[in-house]
Amino acid sequence: MAKTASRVVDVRAEAEKHATGLRGTTGTLAGLGVTLRNMVRPQHVTIQYPEQRKPYSRRFRGVHVLTLREDGSLKCTACYLCETVCPAQCISIDAKEVEDPRIEKAPSRYEIDLSRCIFCGFCVEACPEEALIMSREYDLAVTAREPESLTYGIEDFTGRSEIAAYGAGFRPHPEYPLVESYVPGERKGEI
């Protein structure tokens, strides 16, 4: 490849040659043209959130959901795998005894500090029972700074209507149907 010989340039002279007077406005006019053309072109790339919302994938990792068995009890047996694998160490669980000797264990307290959560989904992957899944909910703004306001417990992971509205997201076996009433008392959105 032939190299063009380099030469020393007097910058001021070059500038005066190309960028003074009317010639100096060519760049600006070209740009303005682009702007004006796009202003009148019909296009709506801006989504008018919150009235309009973008649809997210069925593998979206949003706010967690604790799933239920047919009889309405939590599937979770407080095995602590999710708490152990969480890279942000934001899950906190206490266990209790249950009547049925084939189940034996359930959480008495199950909390995730969503302000620390990185929504990686490791907890869902670790769960051996599909007791913990993630929904497609992503609206989490709160108005208080205290971590308690974003620490969700069992009630929050099973009882809120938002879960049904947003639908289920990331979970290990999407080919199996979730129990009809995985959200108690709510008709679910799309599963």
Binding site: T77, C79, K105
Partner: peptide, 8 residues
């Protein structure tokens, strides 16, 4: 039983 067994 590992998930519900204390010996884990």
């Amino acid at each position: 039983d590992c998930p519900i067994c204390d010996k884990a």
